[in-house]
């Protein structure tokens, strides 16, 4: 697997698509803060609340880009036939999938760090007083968001293992958007339902929408939500492995 990672990681890190994703990430983080700044009408409290809401919201959109990145690059391996070389050289399907998982989890981490850094740097540039933030709550929520990003990356791997085509990135985008809105609406309209609460722990949209919908809000049992999200990610990965092991490749 080390050989696969050492061959693919530099290629992915140098890819134009990753650069585009990072630029989009920075743009969305900076854009979220700046739009909140404009709308706050110089009220620091409103500004902080709005930017924390917006950054969480855009944070839910961004996994589509990181997931799309892996879908596009892996689809490229299938369409160019590069994946054939990996098989011929004796790399097992399990190792190939594990290498993809590690590489694209790493790119997800990079994108996440860039996103968070861009958010806080922009906040700092606006001169806002960040001392009012509860650092522990923010860090917990950020880690939770990252768990959701990873879970989405596993979903993306599953989709590309089922349907290895560049169009899969579009399918991932559509599925994300199609599920996000109903879950947010269901969570907002039925916050008392136990079933909805359980379901929300698997989808950050519902989890955050049901309560504060802010990066600065202290949510109920975040560790349980993280476990649920990662658990679902593991299920996606196992399904991806099942499909990939069974798949006849051309």
């Amino acid at each position: 697997m080390n050989k696969l990672i050492s061959a693919d990681l530099p290629r992915v890190l140098k890819s134009r698509m990753l650069l585009i994703v990072l630029i989009l990430t920075v743009a969305m983080a900076v854009g979220s803060v700046l739009s909140a700044f404009v709308e706050s009408n110089q009220s620091e409290t409103v500004f902080l609340t709005s930017s924390c809401n917006l950054i969480l919201f855009t944070g839910m959109m961004l996994p589509v880009f990181t997931g799309g990145l892996s879908a596009m690059i892996i689809a490229g391996e299938f369409s160019s036939g590069i994946i054939r070389n990996k098989f011929v050289m004796g790399h097992s399907r399990k190792n190939i999938l594990c290498a993809w998982t590690l590489i694209y989890s790493f790119t997800t981490l990079i994108t996440f760090i860039v996103y968070v850094a861009a958010f806080f740097i922009t906040l700092g540039v606006t001169g806002v007083d960040l001392s009012s933030f509860d650092g522990c709550v923010i860090a917990t929520n950020l880690l939770l968001v990252f768990c959701f990003w990873l879970k989405f990356q596993m979903f993306s791997l599953l989709m590309i293992c089922i349907y290895p085509d560049a169009k899969t990135a579009v399918i991932i985008y559509l599925l994300n958007n199609c599920t996000m809105v109903p879950i947010i609406l269901a969570s907002m309209s039925d916050t008392q339902s136990t079933a909805m609460k359980v379901l929300s722990r698997f989808f950050i949209h519902g989890y955050t929408a049901a309560e504060g919908f802010s990066l600065a809000y202290e949510y109920d049992k975040p560790w349980l939500t993280a476990v649920c999200a990662i658990g679902l990610g593991v299920v996606y990965w196992l399904l991806a492995r099942y499909y990939f092991e069974k798949k006849d490749l051309k």
Partner: peptide
């Protein structure tokens, strides 16, 4: 398999 090379249908290139 690692002692084997193959070009299946079209060359696999970037």
């Amino acid at each position: 398999r690692s002692r084997m090379g193959a070009v299946v249908e079209s060359p696999s290139l970037f």
